[in-house]
């Protein structure tokens, strides 16, 4: 039987943006700030997705992922996110570290390829040993109204993932409205997504607070309806520690503290980590380090 989208509540644009802005008013100070910085590092999917990625670049990123700073108190990040061809390099470097290897399969970032090609890409990437697959949904089919096809594709990719965790990228910047984001979130979760993710980082706007809030609310309703835990990953555009803890505040007050773990929440980012490290030093020593003392990886 073909998939039918269940009724989902509508989203009011003005009100949801107001609510999202309210989370930025939480004042995160002293001990709360230190905890937020540690949470943030542990939840980062440290990402490099460039045509110019080389084994050397990925290797440096992996080293940084495992030990982001000289201070041994700084935890390692959740995962390194790379293109499928770099999975082998990342795996070798990260072996035994606890840092996961995530890879963007399914003709990232557009998704505009044949389903069997995308499925094959997923299978091969998982065979290489990737722990997590970040797929993109078929926005062409979505915008053309073929919801069932989007659902079935995600479901078959989920199957192809086998033991690997599946993060489903909605590319919210291409969906146009919050209502579409809410519906697409529902479809992805119904099709078996372990995480839903806002963006590829290749389209602007990428992650925003209100779009993430809409997705968190979809996760909440799905949890109540089915008991199934789905994780959330905003990605793209999150560059500062302050932005990161605004997301954490939103997660805490929408899904509760149980979601404040890398198993349920990730931040897809590349430059965020260095800002967090600056703030970490600031919190530890009372003054800012020069950015020159941080690695650019």
């Amino acid at each position: 039987m073909s998939y039918v989208l269940p009724p989902v509540p509508s989203v009011d644009q003005v009100a949801v943006e107001q609510r999202a802005a309210a989370f930025t008013k939480r004042s995160i100070k002293t001990s709360a700030k230190k905890a937020a910085l540690a949470f943030t590092v542990r939840m980062i999917d440290l990402t490099t997705l460039e045509g110019a990625d080389t084994p050397g670049k990925v290797l440096r990123l992996c080293r940084k992922a495992m030990r982001p700073a000289l201070d041994p108190q700084v935890p390692s990040v959740a995962a390194v996110c790379v293109y499928p061809t770099m999975v082998g390099v990342a795996l070798r470097e990260l072996a035994g570290s606890g840092v996961k290897v995530a890879s963007v399969a399914t003709a990232f970032p557009s998704g505009q390829s044949f389903l069997d090609v995308r499925l094959d890409e997923v299978r091969r990437t998982v065979e290489l040993g990737a722990d997590e697959i970040d797929m993109v949904i078929n926005r062409g089919a979505w915008l053309a109204g073929d919801v069932a096809r989007v659902h079935d594709e995600i479901a078959s990719i989920k199957q192809a993932c086998g033991p690997a965790h599946l993060k489903v990228i909605l590319e919210t910047g291409e969906l146009g409205t919050y209502d579409q984001v809410r519906k697409a979130s529902q479809v992805a979760m119904d099709a078996g997504a372990d995480f839903i993710k806002t963006s590829t980082g290749k389209v602007s706007p990428a992650a925003t607070l209100p779009v993430t809030l809409v997705m968190l609310e979809a996760i909440r309703d799905h949890f109540h309806a089915t008991g199934r835990v789905v994780g959330m990953k905003p990605a793209g555009g999150i560059r500062t520690a302050k932005q990161a803890w605004q997301y954490l505040v939103m997660v805490k007050e929408t899904l509760g503290d149980a979601w404040l773990t890398p198993d349920r929440f990730r931040l897809g980012a590349s430059s965020l980590l260095n800002d967090v490290l600056l703030q970490w030093e600031r919190a530890r020593t009372g003054h800012y380090e020069s950015v020159r003392s941080l690695s650019d990886d």
């Binding site: 269940p6 479901a155 119904d190 078996g192 372990d194």
Partner: peptide, 14 residues
């Protein structure tokens, strides 16, 4: 909250 009663999709048991 019961917004919609659906069975988890096949393979979605997690």
């Amino acid at each position: 909250t019961k917004l919609h009663a659906i069975d988890p999709a096949p393979g979605a048991s997690g």
